[in-house]
Design a binder for these strands. Structure first.
Length: 708
DNA sequence: TCGGAGCTACTTTTT
DNA sequence: GTAGCTCCGA
């Protein structure tokens, strides 16, 4: 079956007419969605509440644009995660028999990176510049801080991570450093001059060594367009249509970029929901979405209001929640699915009991026919899930945790990657610093001397030159290092082979550095080697890891090769855009959700409220909001907690309080019952379970003999 | 100049 | 429970 290839000019008079379309848009979509998907050219704002088929609409719009003659390669789809971009193009591709595959897109960062690689020389950047992830950037700042001797004063100087956040906030919000200090870091105001110096030192350092952090990817792309109008026209010329998902989470920089991308053709479609803006800490401003009609005066504004995801009781709670926010604009979610259980509010004695509740409900739901992958446990911050992880592991329930430790954040993985980065960009002083200090006998000072030599004086940094003060303490290992780098410098060598070469060299250093726990870390190194095999070049491999970090638990899960797709554990942030049959929102405590840090800031409470709203609206059928009544902290001992202020005043006919009851003997029938009404919990043998936890757990676990 | 011992102060969310 | 700092001996 030969494929037909039709070449069309942009002004093709024969472009397909609506009657030629292969998809019946009107039948597949509701009226509002149809209007949005098939809207004409020009700026378009789609305001879409949670679960209203926003993604579906965007996919159909993608298909529609392609069907009506826009070449896929001229469409740019910008999303917040790479996963979202993949999902969408894959679904559109399926819809349109493969024609959407060539759509450009991904995250803002990834798209900008492509542009920058192509036009690096115009910014006086080497083409092989290195992308710094947040931790790399913090490391650079740490080195500069030590060098500048800024820490000498009596007053506490910001930590490296804080420094990075500070400078990043300034960039993303387009604010001056003193404004950021005044607003978010008043305690460091006295260091203003030092910080200002450090900020420019950081900027210079990145420029000299060919390094770009996440913010630079956006900022320098903008700079590129402003500096060179030909390039702007060239890039924007290829953006016939720009589609932006989650527009409420764009910041000033990203909004400016969208404007540039659309500056030639003027076709922008943005989709968003002000009530779901949850990236304020990254400079997002939910008001961006209201400004869209001002920025694009002829913009069409369409709304999606009908919810297809959740039952009415869940929407009632969501509506009730978002009403408490100061600045939500009028929008009530409604659905035809009037029937459904009330969302449940579940206090547990402590965190472990909360975890047992979740684990048992998960098993019960699974037995009643809901697959694990349709269940999710959501939480404010990563460590909130600790008890649940322990409990799930104990019961061998497979899960993937999003928002936890990433593969490339593990120190030993960073070690290996730093070698590859140096091979890729020998000017990358930050990575040099890391790999040199791994060698016993080399500390900050020696590393600095060697870096100066490698990045400035050396003809070839991988060949030991004359006159270098190689102390006998480390000269052997250092020569070995240079030899390793020489043998992987050829970028055409298969990436997996390069990783293996580095691992051979790294192994003894690894075992020494992580003397206590290297056996636990070793599997990660194998994972890394396995992963490398999927990439066609070292550069691709490195930037993919930086821009699209891999969850450690996902790798473990993959290795387990369970045939049953796992349960999802996720931060609320990482769960954005996803939906699940049943959602457990755990640790609904004041100080956790809302987070105590957010409460200190202006507008922080509302942001937390929106976060809570996002969590609730992920649920289709069941929503359990739980919290422990006591917690333990080393410094305090055991103390009473406060339930989240967001659940405090909700009427019982909207959010139903449920009491957990520990039964003496579990009723085996209970285990197979679907949770029509939130049932009492058949838990341990003993209400006072702390000592008898093991026994209780064995007795109550209805999962013995389950196939995982 | 390096690195180990021992102390402190933390711990939000992500590209 | 730990990252990150200071101090001090080698």
């Amino acid at each position: 079956m030969a494929r037909r290839i039709v070449l069309r000019s942009e002004e093709d008079p024969d472009r397909p007419q609506p009657e030629d379309l292969t998809i019946d848009y009107a039948a597949d979509l509701n009226e509002q969605q149809y209007a949005a998907a098939t809207a004409g050219d020009g700026p378009l704002l789609i305001v879409a509440g949670a679960g209203t088929g926003k993604t579906r609409t965007l996919i159909y719009r993608l298909a529609y644009l392609v069907e009506t003659g826009t070449r896929p390669g001229q469409i740019v789809l910008l999303t917040f995660t790479r996963r979202a971009a993949h999902d969408m193009t894959a679904r559109a591709t399926q819809l349109l028999d493969g024609r959407c595959e060539k759509v450009q897109g991904g995250t803002f960062h990834a798209f900008c990176l492509q542009v920058l690689r192509r036009h690096a020389p115009a910014l006086n950047l080497p083409r092989n510049f290195t992308v710094l992830d947040a931790a790399d950037a913090a490391d650079v700042l740490s080195v500069l801080r030590a060098r500048g001797d800024y820490t000498r004063g009596e007053e506490r100087f910001p930590q490296k991570r804080t420094l990075y956040n500070m400078f990043s906030a300034a960039t993303n919000r387009d604010e001056a450093l003193h404004e950021v200090l005044a607003r978010r870091y008043p305690q460091f105001k006295s260091h203003y001059n030092a910080l200002k110096q450090l900020q420019s030192a950081y900027r210079r350092y990145k420029q000299t060594h060919g390094l770009l952090d996440f913010d630079d990817l956006l900022e320098r792309t903008l700079e590129l367009f402003e500096a060179d109008d030909d390039i702007r026209q060239q890039v924007a010329g290829r953006c016939k249509h720009v589609l932006v998902d989650e527009y409420q989470d764009t910041n000033a920089l990203q909004a400016a970029l969208v404007k540039q991308f659309a500056s030639v053709h003027g076709n922008v479609t943005v989709v968003g929901d002000d009530a779901q803006s949850i990236y304020r800490f990254r400079g997002a401003d939910f008001r961006n979405i209201f400004r869209f009609p001002d920025e694009y005066p002829n913009a069409e504004v369409l709304k999606l209001e009908k919810n297809y995801r959740s039952t009415q009781p869940i929407l009632n709670l969501a509506n009730h929640v978002i009403e408490q926010a100061d600045r939500s604009y009028d929008k009530e979610l409604f659905t035809d699915q009037a029937e459904g259980d009330l969302p449940a509010l579940v206090p547990a004695a402590d965190g472990e009991m909360e975890a047992r509740f979740v684990a048992q409900m998960v098993l019960r739901l699974r037995e009643s026919g809901v697959p694990l992958r349709d269940l999710a446990v959501l939480f404010r911050s990563s460590h909130n899930a600790y008890d649940v992880e322990v409990e799930l592991n104990r019961r061998n329930i497979p899960f993937v945790k999003y928002g936890g430790m990433k593969l490339n954040e593990a120190a030993h993985i960073k070690d290996v990657l730093a070698h590859l980065k140096v091979a890729e960009n020998p000017q990358d002083a930050a990575s040099w610093n890391r790999i040199l200090q791994l060698i016993h006998g080399i500390g900050p000072k020696t590393a600095q001397d060697l870096i100066d030599w490698a990045t400035e004086d050396a003809d070839d940094p991988f060949v030991p030159g004359d006159g270098l003060p190689f102390s006998s303490r480390y000269v052997g290992t250092l020569k070995e290092l240079l030899g390793t780098l020489r043998s992987i410098r050829d970028p055409d060598r298969p990436v997996a082979e390069q990783v293996e070469t580095v691992l051979d060299y790294y192994q003894p250093l690894f075992e020494e550095e992580y003397a206590e726990d290297h056996p636990k870390r070793a599997p990660d190194l194998d994972h890394l080697a396995g992963l490398a095999a999927n990439y066609e070049s070292r550069q691709r491999f490195l930037e993919s890891l930086a821009l699209d970090p891999i969850e450690l638990t996902a790798l473990e899960q993959e290795e387990a090769e369970d045939d049953e797709p796992p349960l999802t554990l996720s931060t609320i942030h990482s769960a954005k855009g996803l939906e699940f049959h049943t959602v457990f929102l755990i640790r609904a405590l004041d100080g956790t959700l809302p987070s105590r840090h957010a409460l200190r800031e202006d507008g922080g409470t509302d942001e937390e409220l929106r976060l809570f709203y996002v969590a609730c609206t992920r649920a289709e059928e069941n929503l359990f909001i739980s919290y422990p009544m006591t917690q333990y902290r080393r410094s305090f001992g055991e103390y009473m907690t406060d339930p989240s202020r967001f659940v405090d005043d909700i009427p019982e006919d909207v959010l139903e309080p449920v009491q957990l009851v520990e039964e003496d003997a579990p009723d085996p029938d209970d285990a197979v019952e679907a949770p029509d009404a939130p049932p009492p919990l058949p838990s341990g043998n003993d209400a006072d379970a702390s000592d008898t936890d093991e026994a209780a757990a064995d007795a109550d676990a209805p999962d013995d003999g389950l196939p995982f």
